[in-house]
Design a protein around this nucleic acid. Structure first.
Lengths: 233, 233
DNA sequence: AAATTGTACTTTGTATACAAAATTCATTGT
DNA sequence: ACAATGAATTTTGTATACAAAGTACAATTT
């Protein structure tokens, strides 16, 4: 009895969204490399669908800035240059500061509690020395702040900007020398928000991004140095 | 002689981009109203193309937030609520402040000259009392600042956010009582940038948005009051 | 009269077909 | 040996075809 109600109504996503998510992930993890061409028939065969959903997914990736279109030639994975990353970080710096300021005004008691917990859990995560675990704890901490702003547009923009740095995220996480300052910055941000000290919260959020920027820029220079070394294929 | 070189290579946009621009404009000008359904065959017939470019254009509008998709029902023009506009303005406030700060650091002598000219031209435009002329002069002024940041991502984000307020833009422009304060704010922003006074520039940019917000929110409340008055069709 | 069922119609989701442009590479002529 | 030409191939751009889901509305039952 009650069998009818137990039916799994598992939300069938349109193929274009499945393809979109798949390609997006492949680009962000570096499985599809910058400059690589996205050929429709090839992708269609590989994913077992027709060209139509592939094309629609590419249109969305295009607007998100993950692929660029070359007229009459098709799509390729967008190059990430040092300049484009600096541009992204410059904007994120301002928006992260906005986030913590808004959080000071709008965070709920429940969210404050969660934030404190996330703060502790981040500190504990660094002890595992497992980059994946640490990165997850870091994201969890920041997500609570972003959500606490109650501004959906801001949430969306921060997510999109984070996306661009996804591949480099691990670099500053892996550097164990930085762990203590990361923990300290998180603690200051948490305390400033709870204490409604917007200025201090914002200043620390900016510092937090500046530190990430240093790691990421170092990393990208390394990569590009390597590329310059090897022959064009 | 030289005929070959004179050929107009007039950049044939793919139909999807033509459709995208057409629909985008129709939504922004209010020709397509919030809640209105975008039916593919109908649009295809109206624009004289097949469904394929229509669908691809809709995918882009979807990611830009101008339309929302309802599963198995298709696209409709996104509703603009007071909350969503406040969210947009909250972000724009921070990004406009960032713009003028960056402009202080990076504006070129040539751009400084253009900005001074655009400042004067805005003052002169208000005398015409023609909202279109004034709006154009306003956009020209702000465009110079945004471009002066040299941050392409920032340019793109500001443009996208401006889009959401397009329909309400005229309201604060039309209000003649505000013209003097608008001119004054532009002048202060110009002078602060030239004088490299980031703090004053940013403060005025925020004030500038706050004033717009008041006009726009007043306007949207008026509209929604009207809608509540008439029967649902 | 109200609720329900069933049928015709619309609309989307996906696949395929065809045309036009771009690219590749071998062939030809010098 | 080298440049130019052109056919074959690849790939995109656009249109159309077909299936599945959703919607509207009339007919039927209670």
């Amino acid at each position: 009895m009650g069998d009818y109600y137990d039916m799994k109504m598992d939300e069938v996503l349109p193929l274009r969204d499945v393809v979109f998510n798949t390609l997006r992930k492949a680009i962000l993890t570096g499985e599809l490399k910058p400059g690589e061409r996205l050929m429709e028939i090839h992708l269609a065969n590989r994913l077992g669908v027709s060209r139509t959903p592939i094309r629609e997914a590419i249109r969305k990736l295009e607007l998100e800035g993950l692929v660029i279109m070359i007229p009459r030639r098709g799509a390729e994975v967008a190059q990430i240059t040092e300049k484009s990353l600096k541009d992204v970080l410059e904007v994120r710096r301002a928006l992260d500061a906005l986030c913590v300021e808004l959080a000071c005004d709008r965070i709920s008691p429940e969210e404050e509690r969660q934030l404190g917990k996330a703060c502790d859990e981040f500190a504990r995560a660094t002890e595992t020395k497992d980059a994946t675990v640490i990165a997850k704890a870091d994201v969890a901490f920041h997500d609570i702040i972003v959500q606490a702003t109650g501004n959906q547009r801001l949430v969306q923009l921060i997510n999109n900007l984070s996306e661009q740095m996804y591949r480099y995220r691990f670099e500053y996480i892996k550097d164990e020398n930085q762990h203590d300052s990361l923990i300290e910055e998180h603690r200051i941000i948490y305390e400033s928000i709870v204490g409604r000290d917007k200025e201090r919260a914002a200043e620390t959020a900016r510092l937090h991004i500046d530190n990430q920027e240093k790691s990421i820029i170092r990393q990208i220079r390394l990569e590009q140095g390597q590329q310059a070394g090897k022959k064009r294929q």
